[in-house]
């Protein structure tokens, strides 16, 4: 599958395991539930390990374990559910997560700019979206008033 990562269209090299799937080699992501149940086993996983988090799940419970993960996948069940924008900012600003933060679910071109400002750097676009066309959305705006993950100094300190 193709995804957008760091503003480029690339082949995805992660496999998202459900709670029933057997463990496989290679880069995998699991749910928070599975991570909590199979913590010891998963922390010995030989390749990349990622976790999938929805806005219903408490980010703070995950924080002590963040160093185990190279990828945090944030779920947007519908694009109007904005909770994970806050999660992305907290992951970056407060918990200093340096790995990949990915948006999954109802991820549409018109939200990419805001998502990227909040610190999300990879995107699994919803089905009908064209990745090629979506790339231009990162340049919808060249400025923001606020302090964002991409521009930590608010405009009022820069103008």
């Amino acid at each position: 599958m193709l995804i957008i990562k760091d503003r480029e269209i690339v082949e995805d090299n992660w496999v998202h395991l459900s709670d029933e799937d057997s463990l496989i080699d290679g880069n995998i992501t699991v749910t928070l539930t599975r991570w909590q149940e199979q913590h010891d086993l998963l922390s010995k996983h030989g390749s990349g390990l990622g976790i999938r988090l929805s806005g219903d799940e408490p980010l703070e419970e995950l924080v002590p374990d963040l160093h185990h993960f190279q990828l945090v996948v944030l779920l947007f069940p519908v694009f109007t559910d904005g909770r994970c924008y806050s999660y992305a900012r907290l992951l970056r600003d407060r918990y200093h997560f340096k790995g990949e933060v990915r948006a999954q679910g109802d991820v549409l071109r018109d939200q990419l700019f805001n998502m990227s400002q909040c610190g999300i750097n990879s995107f699994e676009l919803a089905k009908a979206e064209s990745a090629e066309q979506a790339l231009s959305a990162f340049d919808d705006f060249t400025e923001s008033y606020q302090a964002t993950v991409l521009r930590p100094e608010p405009l009022y300190r820069r103008r």
Partner: peptide
């Protein structure tokens, strides 16, 4: 007004 305009975190409250 400026702080709230296009605040990227709070567009889908």
């Amino acid at each position: 007004r400026q702080w709230s305009t296009f605040h990227p975190e709070f567009a889908y409250l």
